[in-house]
């Protein structure tokens, strides 16, 4: 089971991820829905408050697909199919910088703690990490650098 790192601590995850469009459970809990389900039931789902409505995108799905609706979501998760697949870094920045998303931006899937600092700089503020990663390691990785050459999309600490 992955653990959720948020605000520099491992916290309970109140969101449940709905893996695929085949999973038809009721969408009234705090659920992270797949993009297909969102497209299909968008009108009805818009009635839910952001605290209960989340979505997850895979690497190839376009942030533009939800760009106009980002304010509806309390959580957006970007799924990394493998830690070498860096597409999600760009997705994070696009959601924050182009679409102005302000809610929880989560990195899920296969990420390694050594990517936390760059993920944070790309706008992510929540990270699903394997159980084996200690908080000390996670925080050291998150704080790897104290300065930077580039502007970025880092969330407020």
């Amino acid at each position: 089971m992955p653990r959720l790192l948020k605000n520099r601590a491992f916290v309970a995850d109140r969101w449940t991820r709905v893996a695929g469009d085949g999973d038809r459970r009721d969408a009234d809990g705090p659920l992270l829905l797949p993009l297909g389900r969102w497209r299909e039931q968008r009108t009805g789902l818009l009635a839910l408050p952001p605290e209960r409505l989340g979505i997850w995108l895979s690497g190839e799905e376009e942030p533009d697909a939800i760009g106009a609706d980002v304010a509806c979501f309390g959580c957006i998760a970007i799924h990394f199919p493998g830690f070498m697949d860096g597409r999600g870094f760009s997705c994070g920045r696009l959601l924050r910088e182009r679409h102005g998303y302000r809610g929880e931006l989560r990195a899920s899937g296969d990420i390694i703690p050594d990517q936390l600092h760059y993920l944070w700089r790309c706008g992510f503020d929540a990270f699903e990490l394997p159980d084996s990663v200690s908080l000390e390691t996670a925080l050291r990785c998150l704080d790897a650098f104290s300065t930077a050459y580039q502007t970025d999309a880092r969330p407020a600490a």
Binding site: F83, M84, G86, F89, Q115, Y118, L119, C122, Q150
Partner: peptide, 8 residues
């Protein structure tokens, strides 16, 4: 150098 978006 350490461009956060383009390391992978």
């Amino acid at each position: 150098t350490f461009h956060p978006e383009f390391a992978f």
